[in-house]
């Protein structure tokens, strides 16, 4: 059973803005990264899956339930963390999360119990009894996450969960997202415009651009080793490249780097010996991998060509 399935899903705002343009995709459970630039249609897709927005045309199912007709049933099993602020300032985190738990259908006692539990999981302790208005951005994001998981959803939709956080807050939030996806076992969709974040926590990648599907594949297929060794030296990259070619390797200089093809392990020793003989200052030696950025770079080129 696909977790999420859409078929030529289109959403237009007015007559000029097309947020989703015939999007067709199938997603299996996991931690799914939904990546795209601002305005690519990430939030629109999440809102349609929740039934907050009606698509202009096309259809979508979540856990085999139709978004158009079974919205309330779907929403019982979905947790949502919106991109923007969504917390009332004058109530405490405990009260708010428990209220949202009951809105999601938990009986009062269960709502109280689970509220205490999820607030502990997201790392809110003494401050949970204070009004939310006085919280830092990081604490607010935690409350938003807590209200999204208080009813133990089967699917979690997170829209820019690290929005507005400092680097430390980002790391903590990403760890939390990773835990909810793995340890808590909740299928999670993380929308983000930051590839690095998606790369860190997700197992599967959906890339959309201008409302169209760009890529849909496991993360591992993007970050495989390329079989290229990057050698960074202080000076003399060109000379090094020449010597390596003379030694029978395929090597090109690229700025301070020399890129060496590595079909097997033989080049490592040669590179080491040549650098030693030339007395060069070696700064870095690394196995090159595909980066997610390449995905967009390549796509950008084909766009230009078209």
């Amino acid at each position: 059973m696909p977790l999420i399935s859409t078929s030529s899903l289109t959403k237009r705002y007015g007559s000029s803005v097309t947020a989703l343009d015939g999007l067709t995709l199938d997603v299996e459970p996991g931690i799914i990264g939904l990546v795209g630039a601002n305005g690519a249609g990430k939030s629109t897709l999440l809102k349609i899956l929740l039934g907050l927005l009606e698509p202009t045309s096309g259809s979508a199912t979540v856990m085999d339930m139709d978004v158009a007709t079974q919205g309330p049933e779907i929403r019982q099993y979905v947790g949502y963390l919106p991109e923007h602020d969504c917390l009332p300032p004058d109530v405490s985190a405990t009260e708010f999360v428990s209220h949202m738990g009951r809105m999601a259908g938990l009986p009062p006692a269960a709502a109280r119990e689970r509220t205490a539990e999820v607030l502990r999981h997201v790392g809110l302790y003494e401050e949970r009894y204070r009004p939310i208005g006085g919280y830092s951005t990081g604490m607010k994001q935690r409350v938003k996450l807590a209200q999204a998981i208080v009813h133990d959803p089967k699917l979690l939709l997170l829209d820019e969960p690290t929005n507005g956080l400092d680097p430390a807050g980002r790391d903590e939030m990403l760890d939390l997202v990773h835990r909810t996806g793995t340890e808590f076992g909740i299928a999670t969709v993380v929308a983000s415009h930051l590839l690095g974040e998606i790369e860190r926590v997700c197992t599967y990648l959906l890339a959309i651009d201008a409302g169209k599907l760009l890529q849909s594949a496991p993360i591992s297929s993007f970050v495989e080793r390329t079989g290229t060794l990057g050698v960074e030296v202080e000076d003399g990259a060109d000379a090094l490249a020449e010597r390596l070619v003379a030694a029978g390797l395929t090597a090109v200089a690229d700025g301070r780097n020399v890129l060496v093809d590595c079909p097997d392990e033989r080049p490592y020793d040669i590179v080491r010996d040549v650098i030693d003989e030339m007395g060069l200052a070696l700064t870095r030696l690394e196995q090159r991998r595909h980066r997610l950025e390449d995905l967009f770079r390549v796509e950008g080129r084909t766009d230009d060509a078209a």
Partner: peptide, 18 residues
Amino acid sequence: SSDQRNHVLSLYFSHALA
């Protein structure tokens, strides 16, 4: 008004409530 100003509505509408 405060539910609108603080955007709490999107949370309410993302639950079973119509």
